[in-house]
Nucleic acid binder design. Structure first.
Lengths: 121, 121
DNA sequence: CGTTTATTTTGACCGATGTCGAAGCAGACG
DNA sequence: CGTCTGCTTCGACATCGGTCAAAATAAACG
């Protein structure tokens, strides 16, 4: 029942305030933009969603490849982009490679976009 | 004290479930990706943040241009991208053009990325 | 060990996108 | 009316990014 260690991708430490609250620094914007860019492709979004919503919290690449009309190298490329931004992690077990979503990364981006309701300014 | 009309950008009606809950359809992914792609540029992120956090809830283009090292046409281009995805709206008043953030659009994207905490699957 | 299957890397292609200067448009103000 | 200022559009250019086929790597299996 212990708390999971909260894994915030290295590139995103220090970005935790909703962007509507105060202007992002150039530096924060640079790092956040990389993450959103990774989400800015329909195949990557679907991959992430498939992985995150998959039974057991992980999905094998072979499961993912079949869901799309693009070649295996293309899927691999998109997974790499998601990995490099810390949105997913991967682990090889025997023949197959399994991907998991990184909830802390998603949550952080969700927070940045959130709109805290307050008195209408 | 009446409720504001909730303005969800047309392209995003029908996308309201966290992507970790169930796989996005190709169609939803396509539309959401457009929005995230708009957020996938550091200048656009900072523009959005500047606009949303600006006193009065709106900012004039002239305020925005000075904050960056790029030309006015480039700022205008980025604002157009934000406008076309429904993240901001603009209004001309006399000499100046004012931009506002669209909270419903931000909130929707925030929801899609959110991670509802539940029993660890 | 050679083969087969799963996944990634490499290299090339080409369309998409960020950038700028120049030109255009819209109001305001003499 | 003519001109000035604020903003956008146009056209060109360079870079980036998604895609594939082919080759490379990894692990199992016979």
């Amino acid at each position: 029942m212990s708390k999971q260690p909260v894994r915030v991708p290295l590139a995103l430490v220090d970005c935790h305030t909703p962007l509507v609250d105060e202007p992002l620094s150039a530096d924060q914007a640079e790092r956040l933009a990389s993450s959103f860019k990774a989400l800015g492709d329909p195949i990557r979004l679907r991959l992430l969603s498939l992985i995150a919503s998959h039974a057991g919290g992980e999905a094998c690449v072979c499961d993912l490849t079949d869901a799309f009309d693009v070649s295996a190298p293309t899927i691999s490329h998109h997974l790499k982009v998601l990995r490099e931004t810390g949105l997913v992690t991967s682990e090889r077990r025997a023949t197959w490679v399994y991907y998991r979503a990184e909830p802390a990364a998603l949550d952080l981006l969700s927070t940045v976009l959130s709109v805290p309701q307050r008195a209408n300014a």
